[in-house]
Amino acid sequence: MNNDLILLGHGSGGRLSHQLLDDLIIPQLSSVPVKGQNDAALLNIGGVKLAFSTDSYVVDPIFFPGGNIGDLAINGTVNDLAMMGARPLCLSVGFILEEGFSKEELSRILASMRQAADAAGVAIVTGDTKVVPKGKGDRIFINTSGIGALEHNLQIDGASARVGDKIIVNGCIGDHGIAVLSAREGLEIDSGIKSDSAPLNGLVTGLLTLGPALHVLRDPTRGGVATTLKEIALQSGVTVTLNEESLPINPGVKGVCAILGLDPLYVANEGKLLALVAPERADEALEIMRRHPLGRDAAVIGEVTETSAGKVQMETLVGGMRGVEMLAGEQLPRIC
């Protein structure tokens, strides 16, 4: 394989993506030293504290059970801002459209963007539209950037995990990835698996009442819960221990994953967050989540067990302890 070319795996959110960022992109582009990556940048402009984030959406197919590329683009950036503990204020939207794309579909996408923005309480304030010749793009790509207000003095980021922290997820994992896969491949599964795409800023507002007990917020999107926890473990220099039994997974997702041999820990989510909370406030955090419609299935799935060089491990159903690593790209067979 050629090491000089960009591979699909460089976009998987896994180790290859991190390498591309660390080896090529950040050294050339970043004006400040970066230690680990968070979901958004924190800015201080004339005494006003802001969060700023951007994301591009190239999902295939563009319509899937539970949503489409439009609401995904709104929710994704809203969530990235929310994960810094910021209150999302306004968004920009950039479209890259392929010649021949249907106006009717575009219109449906725009409608759901409008709805998603309203639901999240953000304004779309600026935008851009380009059209590329047929075959030079895939129907529609969307970029959104967003600005949020930081209205507290808490240190919420991936480097703030501490030994003892409980890891809480606001609901079942893997829904989005499986919904998109089944739509893309025409799997015709009628177990009602829908994308969990949703704005998490409301839920985060509730969690912020925990004050300094709230240490980390992250949305486990590409690469799933496994990859996100590995990032946190590395950034904070801790060991995270998961408990397989306590992972909330919809039976439908579990069934599809069992047949397809996929590990739900690595499957993408679009309406989930991981909150790392000091143990003495963990029950309270769980309560806050469960009171919110997006957190009814919230569960403690593990804890930070020790300081170390960034390990994630999982107590398995049979009682073993298995290491959890970030994958380079896609899930590949490895048993010899």
Partner: peptide, 18 residues
């Protein structure tokens, strides 16, 4: 589960060639 299993083979979903 058979339709899904067949789809997996047909489309090569997490079914790498070896």
């Amino acid at each position: 589960d058979r339709p899904l299993f067949l789809k997996m083979l047909e489309k090569g979903i997490n079914a790498p060639l070896t």
